[in-house]
């Protein structure tokens, strides 16, 4: 199918720029590894009363949180790339060819998805060395959800970028969006111990659903309703966001 081929074409091109410059791939690991090394000990100490006694336990809670945090923050930065490509005329160069408009956007988003998955895999391996145990099938499902989240956060970033059309405002807006979204997703401290009203607000945050679903998966509780609910919500919202941003793209970029 033509659309799939076009998505693949743009994805391949964007991704190969990254692979050709491995230093970016290496730099991308600094932050998550720092969190993993320096934050998990705190979590273990804080949550000792809730029965978290080993690093393995702490990672089961924290690694999914880290995934969501990364998926959210780095996805929200995608708008910068779009603005740069627009300014350099790269987007126009694509748009004068018969390539599908959806491909131009979705190909880039998929590049971000793969990039995040690569980070997630490295983190999983590192955490496993320190005692994390998670069932491979559950892990795979978590990765899929992470992918959906990146589609969602990149779409949000593209929408904002297309509206404001300048990096400064984009930065301010995405930052003020990422903070509440990540706090209300319980990225650092699980929502389970949050006050009730915070949890009520978080009900409206698809990223919170994703975090809770992933934590259940990491604990091996694939049967928990939150797993399918979270997966469904994040997939549905992500699909809607992708549709919205590609429509906005066809309308605004002209």
């Amino acid at each position: 199918m033509k659309v799939l081929r076009d998505i693949w074409l743009i994805f391949q091109d964007e991704a190969s720029q990254l692979v050709r410059h491995p230093k970016y791939l290496a730099i991308a690991l600094i932050q998550p590894v720092c969190y993993l090394a320096f934050f998990t000990p705190f979590l273990k100490a804080v949550m000792a009363t809730d029965g978290l006694s080993t690093y393995g336990d702490a990672y089961q809670v924290y690694v999914p949180g880290l995934f969501v945090g990364m998926g959210l923050f780095s996805g929200l930065f995608a708008g910068y790339g779009l603005l740069a490509a627009l300014r350099q005329g790269v987007i126009d160069r694509c748009r004068v060819t018969p390539i599908s408009r959806v491909g131009i956007l979705l190909g880039r988003q998929l590049m971000h998805v793969i990039y995040l998955l690569w980070q997630a895999i490295v983190i999983t391996v590192a955490a496993t060395l320190f005692g994390l145990r998670v069932h491979p099938a559950n892990l795979l499902l978590s990765y899929l959800m992470l992918g959906m989240m990146v589609l969602l956060s990149t779409s949000i970033s593209y929408d904002i970028a297309l509206f404001v059309r300048n990096e400064q405002t984009l930065g301010t807006l995405t930052n003020s969006l990422a903070q509440p979204l990540s706090l209300l997703a319980g990225v650092l401290i699980p929502l389970a111990i949050a006050p009730l009203w915070v949890r009520d607000v978080a009900e409206w945050n698809p990223f919170a659903w994703a975090t809770n679903a992933m934590r259940a998966l990491f604990k091996g509780q694939i049967g928990e309703p939150v797993v399918w609910q979270g997966a469904l919500i994040v997939t549905a919202v992500a699909m809607a966001a992708v549709l919205l941003s590609s429509r906005l793209f066809s309308r605004e970029v002209s």
Partner: peptide, 14 residues
Amino acid sequence: RRRIGFVAQTSGTY
């Protein structure tokens, strides 16, 4: 689009 080519002022390459 199939029948034309276009070269913008800004080059459009990374």
